[in-house]
């Protein structure tokens, strides 16, 4: 699907890279751990392709996920996907006892999501000269197979922009994936902002 030009896609990847760096630094500071970052993945998908893309990224695993809507000049939803029992591996870094219960695990992943989404999407919006606001994060899925995390009906448009960044702690068994999903009509707004960014800096 080509609703973004190659230049816009490349621009968005670099903008996402800067947002990812800010989110990585935020989480590194809070957890006092080094965060390994990867290259952001920017792709336009049909709704039916999103689930397969998620499996490609996280593997055929049991995951939990937190969703958080964002509203700027463009709107969308961020989803942070965590591998099985995410809280246990970082509980002590967050000030919890390592044997966390379900409620505490929710608190941990809601907090981490809030920090990552705020810093990453905030960084992206800042590059584009836009203000951004966020809804409260909420648990989207708890310990489900990755291929059942997302249904095509949830998107409700013919295509969606999928931005993925990956965060992993170097010395802990903990990693998560931040997805930003924007429906087609919002992608057009974002694309214009990216054009202005490229015109200004490129």
């Amino acid at each position: 699907m080509n609703i973004l030009t190659a230049d816009q896609e490349e621009g968005l990847q670099e903008i996402a890279n800067i947002g990812m760096g800010q989110a990585g630094a935020s989480i590194a500071t809070i957890l006092d751990e080094f965060v390994v970052l990867s290259i952001p993945n920017v792709v336009v998908l049909k709704p039916g392709e999103i689930s397969r893309q998620i499996v490609n990224i996280v593997g055929d695993e049991i995951v939990s996920a937190v969703r958080q809507a964002f509203h700027s000049t463009f709107r969308g939803e961020a989803i942070v996907i965590y591998h099985y029992h995410p809280g246990e591996n970082i509980a002590d870094l967050m000030g919890y006892d390592p044997s966390v219960d379900t409620i505490e695990e929710y608190e941990i992943i809601l907090d981490i999501t809030n920090i990552l989404v705020g810093a990453c999407l905030g960084g992206i919006a800042a590059q584009l000269g836009a203000d951004i606001g966020f809804s409260a994060p909420s648990i989207m899925a708890e310990r489900v197979p990755a291929n059942r995390l997302f249904s095509a009906e949830e998107v409700g448009t013919s295509c969606a922009l999928f931005i993925e960044v990956n965060f992993a702690l170097e010395s802990r068994n903990f990693s998560c994936h931040l997805l930003a999903l924007l429906p087609e009509q919002e992608v057009q707004i974002l694309a214009r902002a990216v054009d202005q960014f490229i015109e200004k800096f490129g």
Binding site: N17, I18, M20, G21, Q22, G24, A25, A28, T29, F34, V35, L37
Partner: peptide
């Protein structure tokens, strides 16, 4: 780099 962690 965009990786602005002090450790980096």
């Amino acid at each position: 780099s965009a990786d602005i962690q002090p450790t980096a």
